[in-house]
Design a protein around this nucleic acid. Sequence first.
DNA 1: GGCTTGCATTGATATCCATCGATGCAACCT
DNA 2: AGGTTGCATCGATGGATATCAATGCAAGCC
Lengths: 126, 126
Amino acid sequence: MSKQELVVIGQTDEAGACCPGLVSAPLGEDQAMELARLFKALGDPVRLRLLSMIASRAGGEVCVCDLTPAFDLSQPTISHHLKLLRQAGLIDCERRGTWVYYWALPATLDRLAAFLKTPQTAETTT
Amino acid sequence: MSKQELVVIGQTDEAGACCPGLVSAPLGEDQAMELARLFKALGDPVRLRLLSMIASRAGGEVCVCDLTPAFDLSQPTISHHLKLLRQAGLIDCERRGTWVYYWALPATLDRLAAFLKTPQTAETTT
DNA sequence: GGCTTGCATTGATATCCATCGATGCAACCT
DNA sequence: AGGTTGCATCGATGGATATCAATGCAAGCC
């Protein structure tokens, strides 16, 4: 039997607080749980479209009244998905008068992107 | 320059380039559905750890017999998660004699990373 | 105050999913 | 052939989740 041992390398958090990358070392349980929460928030087509509509908006902000009619879903359902995206730290919102405006939090997106990136392209970040 | 020399299998998209990025333009329904399937596969801590264990392995391959004992789960459950990762195009496997070996498909990971990456992070610390 | 609009919350429900034990199947080993 | 090991598949089940109608709540308007 080829019983090899998978030793979890010490999570060397160098220059990055949480996770040095999916490929660099096996994930610990805690990190996996936290990251899975983020990816789960992206694992729905409605939420992906919502996030994309918010993040790609030129002014950086979108009113909910501009998001809801783009879907064939009820208003509470859209509100529910926006809440999940907000709880995941992907977007944030603010009420301004009658309307509520949402904007994207690119730090979380970049963190996930860095986590997924395989280290085959050598580059130097500032 | 800096042309990618990797043959990206998953990008044989007849409708042109699949997804230029989450931030560049609102996602269509079809693209959102396909990408959500991928992110959903990553939205589980067990699958994230499995993928990390596979992708971080030096030789590039891991035997299932090395993966299963790392979890407090039954063998069918691990097999189920591996199947989902494989259906998502994140890993692939091959039977060699008695054992089955899994390896990562970095093209899919890079595609997701590129999709999440924001154009340029301009120090957004409000 | 009373009415309307925009959005969030609640409660209910149908569907999905992670997990398990049992079983099946392929390959190796006497 | 018979037995054993490694892994996948099946069927069942409890918990999570996406969705809706109804309702609540804040803000503007009459």
